[in-house]
C-alpha cells in the first residue's frame, strides 16, 4: 500500500471516529437526567401551565422528534451556526469565541513552560542516568504526576492570595478596572500566574518522563557511541546529536497535549474562577444548556482529534527511521 492511500485510509478512519463522537455528543445531553426547561423558562417553571410549558419547549425546538433534532444539530455544525444559549440568550459562537483565548492563554503558556522545563530536566536526568539527580528528579516527577490538581490549586490560593496577598486568586482580569495597554497586560499576566503555575507544575512530569526515556534510548544508539568513540566531548555530543534526536518523540506527546489544551482544564478553571472554555462546559452541563454543551463538546472533540492527527502525521516526518 502506498503512503498516500495509507494516509487516505487513516483520514477515513478519523472521519468515522469524528462522526460517531459528534453523534454521541448529541446523545449525551439528552441521556442526562434533568431537563433544560428550568433554564429556558426561568425560575418560575413550577408555576407554568401545561400550555406555557409546551410553548417554551417548542420554542427551544425540544418538542421535535429526536431524528429532527439530530438533523438540526448536524445542520448547525455544518453551517457553524449554533444558535442561542438557553441560558444567556446570546449566540453560542460569541460565547465560545470569548472563552477560547482565555483557556488558550492558560494552557498554551503552561504547555510551553512544561515543555521547556520538562525537556531540559528530562534530558539532564538521562544524561546523568542512575545518578542522584536522576533518581531524585524521577521520584519528584512521579510524585507530582500523582498530585490532585484541585488540591494544589487551592493550596496555592490559600498561600499566595489569602496568606501572603501577592497574587489575585480568581478571574482573568480585574473586573471593572478599565485598564488599557501595558497596565491591562500586566493585570492579565498577574491573574494568569497561579493557574498557569498549577497547570505547568502538573504537566511537567509527562514531558519529563517522555524526554528522559527518549534520551536514554538515543544514548544507546550506535552512532552516538561512535561519536563518543571518535573522542567528541560528551557535552557536544549531548547537545548536537542526542537532544535533537530525542526531541522527536517528545513532539508527539506535546502535540497530543495541544488537543487537551482546549478543554482539559475544567478543574483549574473552577478552582481559579477563570472564564475559560472548560468552565463554560461545566456550567452548561450543570444547567443542561444543550446547545452550549454541544458546541463546547464539539470544540473539545475536534481539537483532540486534530491533535491526534497531528501527532500521527508528525511522527513519521520527524523520525527518518520510521519512514517506509
Amino acid at each position: 500500500m502506498n503512503a498516500r492511500r495509507l494516509g487516505l485510509a487513516r483520514l477515513g478512519q478519523y472521519a468515522i471516529v469524528l462522526v460517531v463522537a459528534v453523534s454521541l455528543n448529541f446523545a449525551l445531553p439528552r441521556l442526562m437526567p434533568g431537563s433544560p426547561l428550568a433554564l429556558i423558562a426561568g425560575v418560575e417553571v413550577g408555576e407554568m401551565s401545561p400550555e406555557e410549558r409546551a410553548a417554551v419547549t417548542a420554542d427551544a425546538g425540544l418538542d421535535q422528534p429526536l431524528v429532527v433534532q439530530y438533523l438540526t444539530y448536524w445542520k448547525s455544525i455544518l453551517t457553524l451556526d449554533f444558535g442561542y444559549s438557553f441560558r444567556q440568550g446570546t449566540p453560542i459562537e460569541e460565547l465560545v469565541l470569548e472563552r477560547v483565548p482565555w483557556t488558550l492563554l492558560l494552557t498554551l503558556t503552561a504547555l510551553v513552560v512544561s515543555a521547556v522545563v520538562g525537556i531540559a530536566l528530562g534530558a539532564f536526568a538521562a544524561w546523568r542516568r542512575g545518578g542522584a539527580w536522576d533518581v531524585s528528579s524521577l521520584t519528584v516527577m512521579i510524585a507530582l504526576e500523582s498530585t490532585p490538581q484541585f488540591w494544589l490549586g487551592m493550596l496555592f490560593i490559600a498561600l499566595f492570595s489569602v496568606s501572603l496577598g501577592w497574587l489575585p486568586s480568581f478571574g482573568a482580569t480585574t473586573a471593572g478596572a478599565d485598564l488599557t495597554g501595558l497596565a491591562w497586560l500586566a493585570d492579565v499576566a498577574e491573574h494568569a500566574v497561579l493557574p498557569v503555575l498549577t497547570l505547568s507544575i502538573l504537566s511537567i512530569p509527562a514531558v519529563y518522563l517522555s524526554m528522559r526515556y527518549s534520551t536514554l534510548s538515543v544514548l544507546g544508539e550506535d552512532y552516538i557511541r561512535t561519536a563518543q568513540a571518535k573522542g567528541l566531548r560528551p557535552r557536544a555530543v549531548m547537545l548536537h546529536h542526542v537532544v535533537r534526536t530525542a526531541l522527536l518523540p517528545v513532539t508527539t506527546v506535546l502535540a497530543l497535549r495541544l488537543g487537551w489544551a482546549f478543554g482539559g482544564t475544567v478543574v483549574i478553571e473552577t478552582v481559579f474562577s477563570y472564564p475559560g472554555l472548560g468552565r463554560l462546559m461545566y456550567d452548561a452541563v450543570s444547567a443542561r444548556d444543550y446547545p452550549v454543551m454541544q458546541a463546547t463538546f464539539l470544540v473539545f472533540t475536534v481539537a483532540v482529534l486534530l491533535a491526534n492527527l497531528l501527532a500521527d502525521s508528525l511522527y513519521p516526518r520527524l523520525d527518518p527511521r520510521t519512514r517506509v
Partner: peptide, 26 residues
C-alpha cells in the same frame, strides 16, 4: 489513536543490554 507506541524506535540489542544493566539499579 496515535501510533507512537508501536512506532517507537527499536534500540539495538547491545543498547538494551547496556542500558538494562545501568537502569536496573535505580
Amino acid at each position: 489513536m496515535t501510533t507512537t507506541v508501536s512506532t517507537d524506535p527499536e534500540p539495538g540489542p547491545a543498547a538494551v543490554v547496556r542500558r538494562g544493566r545501568r537502569l536496573r539499579d535505580h
